[in-house]
């Protein structure tokens, strides 16, 4: 049923009301449309700036935080925000601001590493499925169907249950739930590119299979992969914080989700304990969503509005 929609779209493209439009807008390439997107789409620009700020925060956490995030101060337990402790202190008297600042390192890592792993894994499997076809395709796609049939959170939790609670296992769990979506997209694109004239031409000239994949197919998948990667990151951050909240995460990795979890019993009396890390998650996830959304609009003309 996807095809019908696509057919409609191509029909539509070829018989645009304004046949002049093609004349007015020469295809300026993706880099140009991304730059252009930042000019028009303020939300995407805001997302990019926020991401850069969060990256800086993670890099320079020791400079920004001023105190040790793990320093226990039994005199100042659960103190509200003040000049000394901007976001107050937690149930062990630790500085919440410092913990949020250092937590950005863990949460960003949780965002990037599994997304990168599932990007590579998903791309490789998607290319294989699309290019080799037949049995390989059927096998990989059924596997993807299986993974996609689970609620992501439950599957990741089962993986954590099996492997044990550590940050490395968290990476594995998140990669397992994310690769399937990427593989599907890459496969679909490979299939359609395989039929294109330039690939057929390269084939007829005797260019080897893998060269075709790396020269022609992969570069054409790249824009979509960038979007998928950008949108996988907030997903991973979200799942990790949810799992940490439910007590399935690494109890020693002080991620934002774990902080909310530890603060939840005091949430009513000391709201800063959950507000600060929660807002940190919200802002980070939103920044990536804004950016990913803008990139998708710039790259994918289907979604262009």
């Amino acid at each position: 049923m996807k095809r019908t929609q696509k057919d409609l779209y191509t029909d539509q493209l070829s018989h645009r009301i304004l046949d002049a439009e093609a004349e007015i807008q020469p295809d300026a390439g993706i880099a140009h449309s991304i730059v252009n997107m930042f000019r028009v789409n303020r939300a995407a620009l805001l997302g990019l700036i926020l991401i850069l700020l969060i990256l800086l925060l993670a890099l320079f956490a020791p400079l920004v935080a001023r105190c040790d995030p793990d320093a226990i101060d039994l005199v100042n337990l659960r103190k509200p925000p003040s000049a000394a402790h901007w976001f107050g202190t937690d149930d062990l008297g630790r500085d919440v601001f410092a913990r949020v600042a250092y937590g950005s390192r863990i949460s960003l890592m949780i965002g990037f590493v599994p997304s990168a792993i599932s990007l590579v894994l998903g791309t490789a499997l998607g290319l294989m499925a699309g290019f080799l076809g037949r049995r390989v395709d059927a096998l990989i796609m059924r596997l993807a169907d299986v993974v996609l049939a689970f609620p992501s959170l439950l599957l990741a939790m089962v993986v954590m249950y099996t492997l044990g609670s550590s940050i490395l296992n968290m990476f594995i769990a998140l990669s397992i739930i994310n690769w399937a979506g990427t593989a599907r997209v890459v496969r679909a694109q490979t299939l359609s590119l395989k039929e294109k004239e330039f690939v057929e031409a390269a084939r007829s000239m005797g260019v080897s299979r893998w060269k075709i994949v790396f020269r022609h197919i992969l570069p054409n998948c790249l824009p979509n992969l960038i979007v998928l990667f950008t949108l996988d990151i907030p997903g991973a951050i979200m799942w990790e914080s949810s799992m940490s909240f439910l007590g399935v995460g690494d109890p020693n990795a002080a991620s934002w989700g774990l902080m909310v979890s530890q603060g939840k019993s005091y949430a009513y009396m000391c709201p800063w304990l959950i507000l600060a890390p929660g807002l940190a998650i919200l802002i980070t996830v939103m920044a990536f969503n804004f950016l990913g959304d803008g990139l998708r609009d710039a790259i994918d003309p289907y979604m262009k509005t």
Binding site: L18, A20, E21, I24, Q25, N36, R39, V40
Partner: peptide, 11 residues
């Protein structure tokens, strides 16, 4: 005339 994305002048 027509506007196109990100351009001030209209065609």
């Amino acid at each position: 005339s027509f506007a196109s994305d990100g351009r001030k002048d209209r065609a």
